[in-house]
Amino acid sequence: RSRTAFTAQQLEALEKTFQKTHYPDVVMRERLAMCTNLPEARVQVWFKNRRAKFRK
């Protein structure tokens, strides 16, 4: 699988949600996936990586 390049709009939506909660539930992730045209699995991995970045 190749690396996913996120658009500015996708990142904005993801970051906005991350500010609200670092652990979105499956419903919220699926809604984000639909809004951003990304698979739910990519949204889940983005949050996992973003939490790791946040802890540093």
Rank of each mutant, 00 (worst) to 15 (best):
K20W: 10
F6R: 08
V43C: 00
V45A: 12
R29G: 02
F54P: 13
N37D: 10
R1I: 14
V26A: 14
A52G: 01
E15R: 01
E40A: 09
M28L: 11
V26G: 10
T7W: 10
K20G: 07
T7K: 01
F6G: 04
R3Q: 15
M28T: 12
T17H: 04
R50N: 08
L38C: 04
Q9S: 10
A13P: 05
L32T: 00
Q19K: 09
H22E: 05
Q19E: 14
Q10A: 04
E12R: 01
R51H: 01
P39T: 15
N49T: 12
A41R: 08
R50M: 12
A5W: 12
M28I: 06
L11G: 02
L11D: 10
R42W: 14
A33M: 06
R3G: 15
R50I: 06
K48A: 12
T36K: 00
R42M: 15
Y23N: 07
A5K: 13
M28H: 05
V43H: 06
R29L: 15
A8C: 03
L14D: 01
A33P: 00
T36G: 00
K53W: 07
E12V: 01
N37K: 11
A8R: 05
A33C: 08
C35M: 14
R29F: 13
C35Q: 14
Y23A: 03
Y23F: 07
Q19M: 06
A8F: 05
R1Y: 10
P24L: 03
T17R: 01
L14R: 01
Y23H: 07
T7H: 00
D25M: 00
P24W: 07
R50H: 02
R51N: 04
A5Q: 11
V27Y: 12
T17F: 10
T4M: 10
P39F: 04
N37T: 04
Q44T: 13
F18P: 05
V26Q: 14
T17N: 02
R1W: 10
F18A: 01
R42L: 14
C35N: 13
R29H: 04
P39W: 02
E40C: 05
L14N: 03
V45R: 11
A33V: 03
D25F: 01
L14P: 04
R42Q: 15
F6A: 09
Y23P: 00
V43N: 05
N37S: 08
K48N: 05
L11S: 12
N49W: 11
F54N: 06
L32V: 07
L11Y: 05
L14T: 03
T17L: 15
L38D: 00
V43M: 02
R51E: 01
T7V: 01
M34L: 13
C35S: 14
R42F: 11
Y23E: 04
L38P: 03
K53G: 11
A5T: 13
P24H: 05
F6E: 06
A41H: 11
Q10D: 06
T17A: 14
E30M: 08
T4Q: 14
A13F: 14
R1Q: 15
R1M: 15
N49Y: 09
D25P: 01
V26W: 14
V43E: 05
P24N: 00
V26M: 13
M34I: 12
Q44K: 08
L38Y: 03
Y23L: 04
T36E: 08
F6M: 12
T21D: 03
F54E: 15
R50L: 06
A8S: 15
F18S: 02
W46Y: 07
R42I: 13
E15W: 05
L32H: 01
N49H: 11
F18D: 00
E30R: 05
Y23V: 01
V27P: 10
Q9H: 11
T7G: 03
F54I: 12
A33W: 04
P39A: 07
D25W: 03
R42P: 01
T4I: 06
K53Q: 11
V26N: 14
Q19H: 07
E30L: 06
Q10Y: 03
T7S: 12
K53N: 10
V27F: 08
C35T: 13
E12H: 03
R29I: 15
Q19R: 09
R51D: 00
A8P: 09
A8V: 11
T21G: 03
T17K: 06
C35L: 14
R50P: 02
C35W: 12
R42Y: 08
K53L: 15
W46T: 00
Q9A: 09
T36F: 14
A33I: 00
T17S: 12
K20V: 11
T4A: 07
M28A: 10
R1F: 10
F47W: 01
E30C: 08
K53T: 12
A13V: 15
R42V: 14
Q19N: 09
Q19G: 08
W46C: 07
A13C: 15
R3L: 14
S2I: 13
F47Q: 00
T21I: 03
A41E: 11
P39H: 00
N49V: 06
Q19T: 12
L32A: 01
L38S: 03
Q44C: 14
A13Y: 07
A41M: 08
E12K: 04
T7I: 02
R29C: 13
L38T: 05
L14A: 01
Q19I: 04
E15P: 00
T4Y: 06
E40Q: 10
E30Q: 07
V43F: 03
A33H: 03
K20Q: 13
A8H: 06
F18M: 03
L32P: 01
S2V: 10
F18I: 02
M28G: 01
D25T: 03
W46F: 00
Y23D: 06
R50Q: 14
Q44A: 14
K48R: 13
L32G: 04
P24E: 00
L11W: 05
R31H: 12
